[in-house]
């Protein structure tokens, strides 16, 4: 039961590790950003899971409901998503500029190019 009850948290940990691994291990700059996104997504899930109240509904005041989920984590995560989108956009823009400047988006190839001059 407890294992199943913490199901969300297992997902969070798995996504976090997977994303982190991709960021560290991949040479491709786009894939790194994908990894970063997965990593951030795990945090979003963490926050939303924290906000869940057993048996609660969406936090809209209605006559039939007395238990609501905590709305604050949702709001926070909306902000975090915005930040994440901005980060991704900037990261991708940088990758485009790097491609223009170096002609490649593989980290090791760029490192090799920098060695030359």
């Amino acid at each position: 039961m407890s294992l199943f009850g913490l199901y969300n948290y297992w997902i969070v940990v798995f996504l976090m590790m997977a994303g982190f691994y991709v960021v560290v291990a991949h040479e491709n700059l786009i894939k790194k950003i994908v990894g970063l996104n997965v990593f951030q997504a795990s945090v979003f899930i963490l926050y939303i899971t924290v906000g869940k109240v057993q048996g609660g509904t969406a936090p809209i005041i209605g006559e039939n409901f007395t238990i609501y989920s905590n709305p604050l984590p949702h709001v926070l995560i909306l902000t975090a998503i915005v930040v994440g989108v901005a980060t991704t956009a900037l990261g991708l823009a940088l990758v485009i500029r790097i491609k223009e400047a170096y002609g490649t988006i593989e980290d090791d190839e760029i490192a090799a190019l920098e060695e030359e001059p």
Binding site: K32, L46, Y47, L94
Partner: peptide
């Protein structure tokens, strides 16, 4: 190389910031 430096900082900085969010969460 400034582009590369910015990209590197972006990746590490975002990881750092995400760690901070996890902690705060």
């Amino acid at each position: 190389r400034a582009l590369k430096a910015a990209y590197q900082y972006l990746i590490l900085g975002t990881i750092g910031a995400t760690f901070i969010v996890i902690g705060i969460g």
